[in-house]
Amino acid sequence: MSHHTRGRKAEPRPVADPIRAVPKPPKDMTPEAKKEWARVMPVLVERRVLSEADLAAVERYCDATGDIAIARARIRKDGDYVANRLGELKRHPAFATLRESTAEARRWAAELGLTPASRSRAGAHEDDADNPLDL
């Protein structure tokens, strides 16, 4: 009998040399992504689960959540359906971005321990019940 581990994520645990202060977000991040950085980084730093090598993962997560916000705003502005060059109504193209970015954000959130399920696999404590990062 084989043991399948496909889809299982590494458990976020405190690292030997954690980041101890919230770093500034990358300069080229969108304002939406910077907002998410400001929301998640203090909690991740407090948990002591990030090293310098992990910052790119947090950046990718924040970029994806920023893209979600941008896509939603565009859909709100333009409506769910837009006319193509022939005048036919088609579903807004931002729905594709929304779908892809949501999937990417979900994957990065699980890797970083930002979901209830990923925290439970990591043996999170009861005091995480009011965690502002629950997605």
Rank of each mutant, 00 (worst) to 15 (best):
S2P: 12
H3A: 07
G7V: 00
K9R: 15
E11C: 12
R13Q: 14
R13E: 11
P14C: 00
P14L: 00
V15R: 00
P18F: 13
I19T: 13
R20D: 15
A21E: 15
A21W: 13
V22K: 09
P23D: 07
K24E: 15
P25Q: 05
K27P: 01
K27C: 01
M29Q: 02
M29P: 01
T30L: 06
T30I: 01
P31C: 02
W37V: 08
V40Q: 03
P42V: 02
V43A: 12
L44D: 01
V45A: 04
V45C: 07
E46W: 02
E46G: 12
R47L: 10
R47S: 07
V49N: 00
A53S: 07
D54K: 06
L55P: 08
A56P: 02
A57H: 04
E59S: 07
R60M: 07
R60I: 04
Y61H: 09
Y61N: 01
Y61E: 01
C62W: 03
D63I: 11
D63W: 02
D63H: 02
G66A: 02
I68M: 12
A69G: 08
A71F: 05
A71V: 03
A71Q: 05
R76I: 15
K77T: 15
K77N: 14
D80M: 09
V82I: 08
A83M: 12
A83I: 10
R85G: 11
R85P: 02
E88F: 13
T97M: 12
R99F: 13
R99Q: 13
E100S: 10
S101P: 00
S101E: 05
T102Y: 05
W108L: 10
A109R: 02
L112C: 01
L114Q: 08
L114F: 11
L114W: 04
A117D: 10
R119F: 11
S120A: 14
R121Q: 11
R121V: 10
A122T: 00
A122S: 12
G123M: 00
A124H: 08
A124E: 06
E126R: 11
D127G: 05
D128K: 05
A129T: 09
A129H: 06
A129Y: 09
D130I: 05
N131L: 12
P132Y: 04
L133F: 00
D134G: 15
D134K: 15
